[in-house]
Design a protein around this nucleic acid. Structure first.
Lengths: 335, 335
DNA sequence: TGTTATTATGAAAGTGTTTTCATTAAAGCC
DNA sequence: GGCTTTAATGAAAACACTTTCATAATAACA
């Protein structure tokens, strides 16, 4: 098979079999229009050269292109990776290539959203934790590209989301049930503009729970800081040093909660006795650190997204689905 | 958009904006080479017509498919993810799609290696931390698929690797220089059979360093355990409980080192006073945990792999490159 | 046998883009 | 003002096929 030479073209096959390229093309696309003898000769040449038509990829596998795209924020946050893992695992069993489009700016997101539906050559698209404008939704629908949104629902497209408000609420209720009355909140603020801010929803849940319990919180207890463990550590220190410090803290992401834990260790602060800490996400590292947290089934969300996508590709007439994944408290040692 | 009409081509845009198709092409591919006024006019025409370049025609003219594949072990270990991140970041600036092939069994690896060069429709391939048999190498070379191997060098293909032996050696030497004489080793053992085992090389470096220092180590000090933090914790406990315990421990992966750190916390063991710990990899989490470790530039290795690959795609006649990345001690608080 | 259909085939024109090369226009310099 | 650079642009070739159209060869029929 083709030792070292360039990939054979239709011309090589023509030379080999002594007919013109037109005939080769016909053998491939309309075999019945070619005389049996000639056809046989061409097939032999094709086999001998190991010829694979370039555009064959297109005609391959029925009408499908065999590719599924995932637009994801550039994976700095572990939660993106964990979702992606669920996607990769589920998809690897199917006969689809996984094409990754990482977004690191609004521009890039826009460019993906405007070109992929037209030219991306995709059977389906998953958009992870990124906002999709009305015009983009329309384009996706117009071009009939099966799509699943994660964390950013839209009535016209399939979606998988979690109930962030409820998550914030049950985290706070959990702390309340443990007897805490002075509960601080630490959220991330400076996620890049192109990405989503579930933190606000989690904060809302926190406020709801407190209000329902008739508890007033000094506004210094609510801290929105850059998504950075160093900052989380500083905030922890500041909170603890307050004249009347909180007894518990709800961190809107595990990543920040881990920063607080580390600060606590450095300050010799006993967790959870002196400060109870609950996180959100249930990252891999949360288990390792015995962090009490809200589990949002990151792997699972990726898996479900793929499943919805595949079923929608198989039957595009299927009505759009909106799935809300449950959140649950995972009780470990920090709260 | 696209209401019944044919999709607009570069010719339509040329007519609309009153310039030649060459200029349109330039506006799209090298905007800076076109006068600002003209450029503006072309952009307007593009917007007005809703023009989108046709990927297939583009690939044909470019003699490229616009796709680069990465075969990677299914990303359980954070180190794979970090390499992948370097790849994604570097590639996102180029005009290539990133196709991910995750491997979770030997079978799957074999099937990728045998089909991708033929039908994968790829311009280049990166094979991450996976063994490639002689026959597979031959196939890759025969079909002239530009390839870069990471962590598994082969004379006929480009490669990026790190010096694991040296890494093991300098880690051990670092501990020796700190005055330790009783140094334990913790490595991972049950990586799936299809994946690579740099642990043996790191262990070799460890042995070399000890031998050079004329130090004999009880063989119970060398532990090979499943890649699992729980096990790492158990091992840490066992080592400490020995009648004559080690004063330092070199863990072949940060992941295991972190498990040891946790065990130490639970046992109330002072680190590094009672047990110095050094890891290997310099994962993101290592910095967070102030783990002293051997840095192997994971992100960078992905970046370099892509750079080599792209230059090789641009000029396939270029001789193969073998890059060995340096390893360095990153001194933090645990050793 | 001469005429008409039918079948098999090749030449050549498309397909939509990139890129090289040549040309023109503008700018810089003495 | 003449000469040399430099910038901006278009013409045309290349890419790897598909498809149309014309032609040659064969078969069918009177």
């Amino acid at each position: 098979m083709n030792n070292g030479k360039k990939a054979p073209t239709i011309f090589d096959v023509a030379t080999e079999s002594g007919v013109s390229i037109s005939t080769i093309s016909r053998v491939i696309n309309n075999p019945e229009k070619v005389n049996l003898n000639t056809r046989q000769r061409v097939y032999e040449a094709i086999d001998k050269l190991g010829f694979v038509p370039q555009a064959e990829a297109r005609a391959r596998a029925l009408r499908l292109k065999g590719r599924i795209g995932v637009i994801t924020p550039f994976f700095t946050a572990p939660s993106f990776v964990q979702r992606l893992r669920g996607i990769a695992r589920t998809l690897s069993k199917e006969n689809f290539d996984l094409v990754i489009y990482t977004v690191d700016s609004n521009n890039r997101l826009q460019s993906y959203l405007s070109t992929l539906p037209l030219t991306g050559n995709l059977d389906g698209l998953i958009i992870m934790s990124l906002p999709v404008a009305e015009a983009d939704v329309r384009r996706l629908v117009d071009h009939q590209l099966s799509t699943v949104l994660i964390e950013f629902p839209h009535p016209q497209l399939n979606s998988v989301e979690i109930n962030d408000v409820e998550g914030g609420r049950i985290a706070t209720e959990y702390l309340l049930k443990k007897g805490h009355r002075r509960i601080a909140f630490l959220g991330d603020t400076d996620l890049p503009e192109y990405s989503l801010h579930p933190v606000n929803l989690r904060l809302k849940g926190y406020r709801q729970a407190l209000e329902a319990a008739g508890i007033d919180i000094p506004h210094e207890f609510v801290r929105l800081e850059p998504y950075d463990q160093e900052r989380a550590r500083m905030v922890a220190k500041e909170l603890i040093d307050m004249p009347n410090p909180p007894t518990a803290l709800f961190a809107a992401t595990d990543f920040q909660a881990l920063g607080v834990l580390k600060a606590a260790r450095q300050l010799g602060l006993k967790i959870p006795e002196q400060l109870a800490v609950i996180g959100f996400d249930d990252l891999d590292m949360a288990e390792y650190e015995d962090l009490t947290t809200i589990r949002q089934h990151l792997d699972e969300s990726g898996k479900i997204a793929i499943e919805i996508l595949l079923s929608h590709i198989a039957d595009p007439s299927r009505p759009v689905q909106h799935i809300t994944l449950p959140v649950t408290v995972i009780e470990r040692l920090t709260a």
